[in-house]
Design a protein around this nucleic acid. Structure first.
Lengths: 185, 185
DNA sequence: AGAATTAAGTCAATATGACTGACGTAAATT
DNA sequence: AATTTACGTCAGTCATATTGACTTAATTCT
């Protein structure tokens, strides 16, 4: 048997309000619901995160560890506070995951040079290697997903994804994505 | 202060292996990692699921309830077994969530006509309304995300998302998406 | 008719990743 | 000197998932 088995039984009692009325305008809203895109996003995202999940499972790490590792790899020397702001989780949630990554020698904490309260975060050699491995897996999937699409599709997808994000957050995220080393301050 | 605050401190010690070597080919793999797409997907998906999450929080429901409601709405009369296959979770995980939805009058179970072991799943009137509300929220976000993109972009995005999915699963998912009422068997 | 399989549910124990709220300490800023 | 910030921690809770074993009823297979 295949992994995914879709043979829903027949619908013995079709819902009355689902029967099209004579007025097309009345059905428009319901008919135009983009269920295909909604479901494709669901399945696509699941598989997209699945690749790294499988690798991390060998280390007894989960997706939370991946997110932390990813953003530390991308923003070496990031403050704990800023990392919390990116991930939108609480200090306590980060605490456990971060401690495990530090204990496993994946992430390293260094005291801030100017501000000794800070515990700036860096990937270790091992962490750097692992982060790259995970990014490569996701890269391969992204490349496969763009195969056969017309020129310019990557930029369309990029724009689409950016516009999926809440408008207020877009500028911040653009900055984060474009310049992982702001070197400001 | 804005919600997202990205001011990572400067990197006092740039990693040595990150300094470009004289051989461009040696840096290629690392340089081409599509961090922007990876991160855009992360933030986009978070906001995409965030809209329904907010509505469901009022009912004391979570994302798990949304997924169940969504696929029952889309596949009226679906068997529990098939729903498990779609969601890829265990019977026990579904059990609790499904019971809460039934207790809240969102989902209804009817005995199969041909096979009396089955508890076929349907949305109630209320469940149908709620499912539509949530789909509308996601529809609005998808429409916003496609604004300003060239003609044919929706199809490109659809194809991109489909190709993000593991090849073995694509056919099943295509069938699921296209014909929520297979009427077969 | 009897055996095997399937659909659904349940019990018990566990793990992960998140939350709230409060508190403490050290360091920097005002 | 007072306040704020950065970080960590304690204690408790919640949501969602897991595994494995077992039951009941109904259907299908031989």
């Amino acid at each position: 048997m295949t992994d995914v088995n879709f043979k829903p039984a027949i619908s013995p009692v079709p819902r009355e309000e689902d029967v099209a009325s004579n007025d097309p305008a009345q059905n428009e809203a319901e008919d135009s619901l983009p269920y295909d895109l909604i479901e494709l996003l669901f399945f696509a995202y699941k598989d997209f995160t699945g690749d790294p999940d499988d690798v991390l499972a060998e280390f007894e790490f989960g997706r939370a560890h991946h997110r932390v590792l990813h953003f530390v790899e991308r923003n070496p020397g990031i403050m704990v506070t800023d990392l919390l702001g990116i991930l939108r989780i609480t200090k306590q949630s980060l605490g456990r995951v971060l401690k495990q990554l530090v204990d496993a020698g994946i992430i390293e904490q260094r005291e801030g040079l100017n501000d000794r309260r800070q515990r700036l975060l860096y990937t270790t050699e091992r962490g750097h290697t692992l982060a790259e491995e995970l990014a490569h897996l996701q890269q391969k999937r992204l490349e496969r997903a763009l195969i056969g699409l017309p020129d310019g599709s990557e930029e369309i997808v990029r724009q689409f994804l950016l516009q999926m994000i809440d408008p207020e957050a877009r500028a911040d995220i653009m900055r984060l994505i474009r310049s992982p080393f702001p070197l400001k301050d």
